[in-house]
Computed example of a mutant assay.
Amino acid sequence: MGKLYEKLTDRLREFISAQPVYFVATAPSQGGHVNVSPKGYADTFTVIDDLTVAYLDLDGSGVETISHLRDNGRITVMFCAFQGPPNIVRLYGTGRVVTPADESFAELLPRFGPHPGVRSIIVVNCERIADSCGFAVPFMAFEEDRSMLDEWAGRKDVQQKRAYRAKNNRESIDGLAGLSAEETDPVTQHS
């Protein structure tokens, strides 16, 4: 059954890197909506060290994760095996939002594959690393990543991306602050 780990072992890193989808969960401090977001593109997730991971935050319709992290920092990232032996790995921790204006952004960006709609990088310091059986998770076959998000972002010019983010990413559905006005400027370089 389940096991706790002091760090991200080689076996856990291998498992994580083999999953084509992962899930991110956050919640505001005071009531509000719990958010769970599926994330695709395996090249948007990286293990930085034994207790630190990061993922590329791409343009989206909402800004819940960014808002919640700025509110309280709490985050859980979950990976499920849909092929092979059953397994679920959860990384519980504290996350921070790294925007293009942050000094560490340029250092982190090359760790990811090329994507045109980069908003930020989410860095997670893991405080609890656990796996569980995953016996009820179904077998599913991975065919390929959907290209729609990258295609959508690739069709937008700088002004269109700025306008989209200003309209959709300034605050969460619960009214928490999301991207500030200066953070809505699109990244000028690809990941």
Rank of each mutant, 00 (worst) to 15 (best):
K3D: 08
K3N: 08
L4Q: 14
L4K: 14
Y5V: 00
E6G: 13
T9Q: 10
D10M: 06
L12Y: 08
L12I: 05
E14T: 14
I16E: 04
S17F: 15
A18L: 14
Q19F: 12
V21T: 06
F23I: 01
A25G: 00
T26C: 02
P28A: 03
S29L: 07
S29Q: 09
G31V: 00
G31T: 00
V34P: 11
S37T: 01
K39L: 02
G40W: 08
Y41C: 14
Y41P: 12
T44H: 15
F45C: 04
F45S: 06
D50T: 02
A54S: 09
A54C: 09
L58M: 12
D59R: 06
E64K: 09
T65S: 00
I66E: 04
I66W: 06
H68I: 05
N72P: 02
I75Q: 03
T76S: 00
M78L: 00
C80L: 06
C80F: 06
A81Y: 11
G84N: 12
P86G: 10
P86D: 12
I88H: 05
I88T: 02
V89P: 01
R90W: 10
R90E: 07
R90D: 05
Y92F: 07
Y92Q: 05
Y92T: 02
R96V: 07
V97M: 03
V98T: 03
T99H: 10
P100H: 04
D102H: 04
E103D: 09
S104Q: 15
L108T: 06
R111V: 07
F112T: 03
G113L: 05
P114L: 15
P114Q: 15
P116S: 01
P116W: 04
S120A: 03
S120V: 01
S120H: 01
I121H: 07
V124I: 07
E127L: 11
I129Y: 07
A130L: 08
D131P: 05
C133T: 07
F135W: 15
F135P: 12
V137T: 03
F139P: 11
M140I: 05
M140V: 03
F142Q: 11
E144P: 12
E144L: 14
D145H: 10
S147D: 13
M148L: 13
L149H: 11
D150P: 09
E151G: 05
W152F: 08
D157C: 08
R162T: 02
R162V: 00
A163I: 12
A166D: 13
K167D: 13
K167N: 13
N169A: 10
N169V: 08
N169G: 10
I173F: 12
G175N: 05
A181D: 15
D185Q: 13
Q189P: 05
Q189V: 04
